[in-house]
């Protein structure tokens, strides 16, 4: 099922590119082009997440959010080119789930969106992968009684690959995910982590689980 995201941004080019970015990432998008009664339209849209610009022609995004929050608790991510501490504090106090300043890094934006959506869906701590069971909080891979302990980095990589099972995940995306979790690794360290994860998966009986696609990235089968 595709998550539906509502984009509220008055700059046409930006809106179009944002929508393209989200569609490429597998979301369904809905763009607002009429800025009358924005919060009413937000309420009627039934979107699962809203990207809201602060500087809108009719009404300030913060005011819209305040009104929207009276009745709805759909996650809202504020997008803005205003970057003072006060703006951020205001948005968060009106009930924004995240606050991202322009120009936003596309991969980080996607990560934040998926993080907010995950938080809403209350993902379970256990994920299944073939015959393995991954415990995300304990950081372990279980195959019956055999258990492999993954490091934090390996778990982040495994989780991202698992989220996109069957698709190519680029090194840049893996890097972004690691850095977003305060793991400031460099290129070499990423390769080392991936080869370690590979050997751990091999020991669990899945020797060729991670496929390398030259110049593109990795793919979890």
């Amino acid at each position: 099922m595709k998550n539906k995201i509502l984009i509220i941004e008055d700059d046409a080019v930006l809106r179009q590119e944002l929508s393209l970015l989200l569609e490429n990432a597998g979301y369904e998008t809905l763009c607002l082009t009429d800025f009358h009664d924005v919060s009413g339209q937000m309420k009627r849209s039934r979107a699962e997440l809203v990207l809201l610009d602060i500087n809108l022609p009719e009404m300030n995004g913060e005011m819209i959010l305040q009104d929207f929050r009276k009745t709805h608790n759909t996650p809202v991510i504020m997008l803005t080119s205003r970057n003072t501490e006060l703006d951020e504090l205001l948005s968060m106090s009106y009930g924004a789930d995240d606050y991202i300043t322009k120009p936003y890094h596309p991969t980080i934006l996607l990560l934040r969106i998926s993080a907010v959506l995950k938080r809403m869906a209350k993902f379970s701590n256990f994920r299944n992968y073939h015959q393995l069971q991954a415990d995300l909080t304990k950081g372990t891979l279980k195959n019956g009684d055999a258990e492999q302990i993954l490091t934090k980095n390996e778990m982040i990589i495994f989780q991202l690959l698992l989220d996109h099972q069957g698709e190519i995940v680029t090194r840049d995306e893996l890097m972004t995910a690691l850095w977003d979790n305060d793991e400031f690794v460099n290129d070499n360290a990423l390769s080392v982590n991936i080869s370690r994860l590979r050997s751990k998966l091999t020991e669990c009986g899945l020797p060729n689980a991670i496929e390398t696609r030259k110049k593109q990235g990795y793919l979890l089968r």
């Binding site: 930006l14 590119e17 322009k102 890094h105 991969t107």
Partner: peptide
């Protein structure tokens, strides 16, 4: 001005990515 110029920068960044 800075806030205005951030808009085209954002658009360009997304375009490059897309």
């Amino acid at each position: 001005w800075v806030h205005e110029v951030k808009l085209p920068i954002s658009s360009l960044q997304l375009m490059l990515h897309n």
